[in-house]
Each structure stands twice: as structure tokens, then as C-alpha cells.
Design a protein around this nucleic acid. Sequence first.
DNA 1: CAAATTAACTTGCAAAAAGCAAGTTAATTT
DNA 2: AAATTAACTTGCTTTTTGCAAGTTAATTTG
Lengths: 135, 135
Amino acid sequence: MKQRSDCPISSALDIIGDKWSLLIVRDIMMNGKNTYNEFLKSAEKIATNVLADRLVMLESTGIITKEEHPDSKAKIYYKLTEKGIDLLPIIIELTLWADEYLPVSKAAFAYGKVLKKDKESITKQMMAALKKANK
Amino acid sequence: MKQRSDCPISSALDIIGDKWSLLIVRDIMMNGKNTYNEFLKSAEKIATNVLADRLVMLESTGIITKEEHPDSKAKIYYKLTEKGIDLLPIIIELTLWADEYLPVSKAAFAYGKVLKKDKESITKQMMAALKKANK
DNA sequence: CAAATTAACTTGCAAAAAGCAAGTTAATTT
DNA sequence: AAATTAACTTGCTTTTTGCAAGTTAATTTG
């Protein structure tokens, strides 16, 4: 992995600056998905090799970890690390920006109004919940 | 331009989910750059064809506009639209996350402490300043 | 308990995007 | 008038994506 510069924005984009990484994070964080096949089923239809590649990448950069799945040895349970959970504010801001400027379905963003009004406290709440559930 | 789904996060990433777009926005927003050659000179060394491509793309998606450069007809003055300025919170969050988890130079992020403590008000201030200067 | 299915990949190949060096054109400076 | 600057464009190579199919181990089904 190459760092293009020592600018924090650039360095962040070196890791999550692509079309897929944050969608995997979203799936774990917001959609209760934790396995390879669950990620595959998402609406955006990630290619299998790209998914495999991103999972390796997200693990190697410490954003997710692999664990035994509680239900089956055939499955792998992917979960966010604290570093991964801390991507939440970025995801929130992306959501708000898209909600403001792009044609996204209102169904896909039901809690828009609340979030806009109370961003800080909702983010904190979600973050706390994610970290608690992660222990 | 294809929208992969109607999820706001995915839709945002359809536009700015790449390694370069937000760096151009950063250069305009934070580094006072406004021309092709200024963008080229940034530390990350974007390729000329990629830069040309992204500029077209950012303009077509309404994030930047082209204007006459006040100093010279040979130059083009790129500036952010309101839609572009509203990417600031995303950029702030990327910065904070990188500052927390990645090895970025402290010089490159001098106002880190202040920002962490007072994110909301600083963001509002910067946003207001950018919008005012943009009129 | 053998056969089918599921889960998590891997492989091979075509298409798209990124990177690099060099070239073009209009405006500006020397 | 000649050199330089600014904003691209072009051609070519390398890398990344995308797609279809195949593999292996674990699990479920008849």
C-alpha cells in the first residue's frame, strides 16, 4: 500500500477512497451483514473477486476482523474494529450530502429529518451502540 | 454516470468515491488552488489525463464551475459550487479519522487539536467563510 | 449417509480506468 | 519574434474492474 502524500485527506483516501470499501463498512454497520454472501447480496452487486480483495484489504488495514461465525464453521463472521466503527461520522456526512444533493430514495433514508436536526447526538448514540455491541 | 443503487452512501460514492475527486475539492477549499496547473503541482501527482477527466466530471456533477481567471485569459478559474462547498463536513471527518488512525504528518494537520475539540463550530465557521468568499 | 446445497473463495479473460511521456494550441511574457 | 505558460489531448502500458465459471470445505436434505 502506497501513501501518496502525508496529507490526512489523501491518506484516508488511499485506504477508503474507492467505490466499494465503505459499502462493506455500511453493510456491517447499518445493515447487520457480516458474511461474504450477505455482502454479495447487496443491491450494488460487487464482483466476487473485488469483494474478496476488499475484505483482505480492510482486514490488513485494521478496519475489520475475521472471526468464527457463531452458527457455522463454514461461515466467517466479519466485524468492524474500533477503527472501522469510527468511520461512522464519514458515512453519516456522505449520507447527509447525498440526501441533500442526489436523487436517493426516501425509503433508503427514512431517518433523514431527525439526523439533520440532531446529527451530533444521533451519531454519538449510534457510535456508542456499535461499540457496546462489539465487545 | 451510473447509479448502482438508491442508497445515499452508494450514490455519494458513485460521484466522489475515488482517489482523486476529493483531493481536487481539498485543493480548492483548503489550499487556495484554482487552476489546472496548481492542481497538477500538488504532492499526490495526479496524471494530466486523470485531472482533465475529473474536472469534467466534477463540473458535470455540479461540484465545481469554470470561470474566467481574473488575471489571464490563458487560465481557467475553477471554483466550488455550494454543492461542492457542502462536501466540507465529509472532508473534515476524513481528516479527523486519518489523524486518529493513520501516520499523517502533524505539520499537515496543524489545527487538529482545535478541530477535535470544537468540530461543529469550526466547520460552521469554515463553511460560512467559503460561502461568503464564493459570492 | 450419499447427494445436493451453501459459503467463501479463486481463476481466467475481457473491458475500463490509471499512469506516463510526449505533443498540441492559445495566450502571455521576454 | 521566440520562449514560456496554461490547459489540455494522444498513444501506449499497466493496473483495476467486472463477469462467468470453477474449487473446496462444511452443512443440509431426501
